[in-house]
Design a protein around this nucleic acid. Structure first.
Length: 653
RNA sequence: GCUGGCGUAGCUCAGUCGGUAGAGCAGCUGCCUUGUAAGCAGCAGGUCGCGGGUUCGAAUCCCACCGCCAGCUCCA
């Protein structure tokens, strides 16, 4: 056996090195000190390894530097280890569990009687950064499962023991340990070379989290934090969090008069005048669009006898999410549960199916597309409510399409076209997720053959469209697989909004049929789809996407007339009345404020146009529009301004 | 639901050791007659989330409840 190994670098070049050289030494001697300094971990024949790993065979070597997002992820995992070691030092008796890197940071779950306070967090953060500065190397070691069990039993770490046993049960023979200083944890790795390389750690918040995410298990204390190689990057990240906080629709909504909440109706919004306008603009635009697209708008009851939900399958799978209603004519001797025999609808689908069944359907009618904007109620856990994105009462731009199997690809691509039109209008990018059947059989209805068919048909439609998509196994609805649209807003945040769900189960359960050209009865397929998703959630997303500065077609107030002095009020009133008569949403500021203050107030209200009226404008029978943000459009005639509104404030669909 | 934090005027926030609640902005009323992000003055505004308890006395201490916020496997 030669005592040299051949190392192949990503550019294809090959270098010899003494067998057993560590990655870091190899880089130092054969590539250069610059790279050695920037290196964080490496890939040896694709396997992620520490820089201290010895190269013991011919191999491809790739160095991952601190410029790479993957290195940051490793560093955050390093940070989780260091924080855990610090916590155990500061709070003896605290047990460690798991602590992964997550998007934008890391967390670590601790088992401890007393929860951490915000003051504890400050203390831990300080000590963590000090421990990082101590620059202890991360040392890797492999030991047998038995030795590992002994080690963690000896340390009294019962959660770690449980995990070790699980890993052993999965057939592992050895366990990889990582130490820094006298602290040890097991971990697949890799880790960075030493603690100082992590950079800077910031702890963000503490929250409860169940062991293994199961509410039946013990509640652990989770500390969230983040780490960056460079302090400037951390500051930029914190600035972004601040920007997100400022755009929070829960702040902006009430401030702009869009919506509000009251404690007597948790999870249900009050729509204020401005918000109602915005809501209606979105709804009207969608109504025009789908009507052009061959949909028929319908309305169905809000309250149903439970027989409907038994037939649809909701009673079995979805009951705990429904608001049940008391039937006063039921037998008082019955248990309460049985007297709650009505329910507010959580979804529109079953009632649409009933509508479909109200007549004999021919293949010539298909696809039938029912569109509904009705109020839905879902009994979400109180702790999961928040703003407009997690509510108990909402409305969707919901539709159910009844079609022949052969029409699926065409219909799916028509829906995707709708999505493109709508999302394009807001400058929202989207990507597709394909979600397949729920993993546990009790969480779904319909047999496997039906699911195979439904998943196959959706997948075929997806492939035909040629848009890229990702698989999201197990996340389908209980009645069928779905395509989720994930939109990315102006801050780069991702939101799941609209869906396309394929349903073979409902036609069976409701015995839906149509008469084919062969004069025989056939089963249609049902597609569930929503474009905005829920109006509530969508308005929350738009509010944050635009930071409350809605484009003129959406803005609740499109223009505000502001006068230089009350001498010009007569013309100002005429301007307001004339524009309003044309259907534009225009208001008049008649306060005794000076112009500067009026402009400022209009800016704060995020109104697209301020129409300044002074001596010149009265003489010219015109207005001087100022855009939100400051652009002065100079005096123009009222007609010219109206033409501007027609160009910029007409709904794009 | 569970864990932790928070709840004082419409909004943002002070309120010391337990001693009967305060500012700025917004609002209202005047004055100012004003040219593109805050003119001046005065006035008014509070069951301190709700209910109990301790105390001579509670925004403040204790208990229960309600609501809001963060989180509740991105699986070594």
């Amino acid at each position: 056996m030669s005592d040299l190994v051949k190392v192949t670098l990503p550019d294809g070049s090959q270098k010899d090195a003494p067998r057993g050289t560590t990655v870091l030494d190899f880089v130092k001697t054969s590539i250069g000190p610059g790279l050695a300094k920037a290196a964080y971990f490496a890939r040896l024949d694709g396997e992620a390894v520490d820089l201290s790993r010895a190269i013991d065979r011919d191999a491809k070597l790739e160095i991952v530097t601190t410029k790479s997002p993957e290195a940051l992820e490793v560093a955050r995992h390093d940070a989780a280890h260091v924080m855990a070691s610090v916590v155990q030092k500061l709070y003896p008796g605290t047990q460690v569990t798991i602590g992964p890197a997550i998007e934008d940071g890391f967390y670590y779950d601790f088992a401890r009687e007393t929860p951490f306070t915000p003051e504890d967090l400050e203390k831990i953060e300080k000590a963590t950064n000090e421990a990082i500065a101590a620059d202890l190397p991360f040392v890797r070691e492999e030991i047998s499962m038995d030795a590992a069990l002994g080690l963690f039993e000896g340390l009294g770490e019962k959660y770690k023991v449980e995990i070790v046993k699980d890993i052993a049960a999965r057939g592992a023979k050895t366990l990889t340990l990582y130490r820094h200083g006298d602290w040890v944890d097991f971990c697949l790795g890799p880790h960075g070379p030493s603690t100082k390389r992590i950079g800077v750690v910031k702890l963000l918040n503490v929250a409860g989290a169940y062991w293994r995410g199961d509410a039946r298990n013990a509640m652990l204390q989770r500390i969230y934090g983040t780490a960056f190689f460079d302090k400037k990057e951390l500051e930029a990240h914190l600035a972004k969090l601040e920007e997100v906080r400022k755009r929070d629709h829960r702040k902006l909504g009430p401030a702009l008069g869009l919506f509000a909440f009251h404690e007597v109706a948790p999870g249900a919004a009050f729509w204020l005048p401005n918000g109602t306008t915005l809501y209606n603009v979105l709804e009207d635009a969608m109504r025009r669009l789908v009507t052009k697209g061959g949909y028929q708008e319908v309305k169905t009851p809000l309250l149903f006898n439970k027989r409907l939900w038994e037939q649809s399958g909701h009673w079995g799978v979805y009951r705990e999410n429904m608001f049940l209603v008391f039937d006063k004519e039921s037998d008082p001797a019955l248990p309460v549960d049985e007297r709650l025999s009505m329910s507010l609808k959580p979804m529109n689908c079953p009632s649409h199916h009933l509508l479909y069944k109200m007549g004999k359907r021919s293949y010539r009618e298909l696809p039938i597309r029912y569109f509904t904007v009705d109020t839905l109620h879902r009994n979400e856990l109180s702790g999961s409510l928040g703003g407009l994105t997690r509510v108990r009462q909402f409305a969707q731009d919901d539709a159910h399409l009844y079609l022949m199997e052969s029409q699926i690809p065409e219909e799916v691509s028509r829906i995707v076209e709708l999505m493109k039109t709508v999302y394009g209008a807001f400058g929202l990018e989207f990507s597709l997720l394909f979600s397949t059947r729920p993993l546990k059989p009790e969480d779904r209805i319909g047999d496997d053959a039906l699911w195979d068919k439904a998943e196959g048909a959706l997948r075929a439609a997806l492939d035909k469209m040629g848009l890229p998509w990702e698989l999201n196994p197990g996340d389908g609805a209980f009645y069928g697989p779905k395509i989720d649209f994930v939109v990315t807003d102006s801050l780069g945040r991702k939101w799941q909004t609209c869906t396309i769900q394929l349903d073979y189960a409902a036609p069976e359960r409701f015995d839906l049929t149509y008469v084919g050209d062969d004069n025989h009865e056939h089963r249609p397929v049902v597609i569930h789809r929503a474009v905005y998703g829920s109006f509530e959630r969508f308005i929350a997303i738009l509010t944050e996407h635009y930071a409350g500065v809605f484009p003129a077609w959406l803005a609740p107030v499109q223009a505000r007339v502001v006068t230089v002095s009350d001498r010009f009020d007569a013309w100002a009133r005429e301007v307001q009345a004339k524009l309003a008569a044309q259907g534009w949403r225009v208001e008049l500021d008649e306060s005794s404020d000076k112009l500067g203050a009026k402009i400022r107030n209009a800016q704060l209200a995020k109104i697209p146009f301020s129409l300044v009226i002074g001596e010149k404008e009265v003489e010219a029978k015109g207005v001087a529009p100022r855009r939100h943000g400051g652009e002065d459009l100079k005096t123009m005639s009222l007609d010219a301004f109206e033409a501007l509104l027609r160009r910029e404030a007409t709904p794009p669909y």
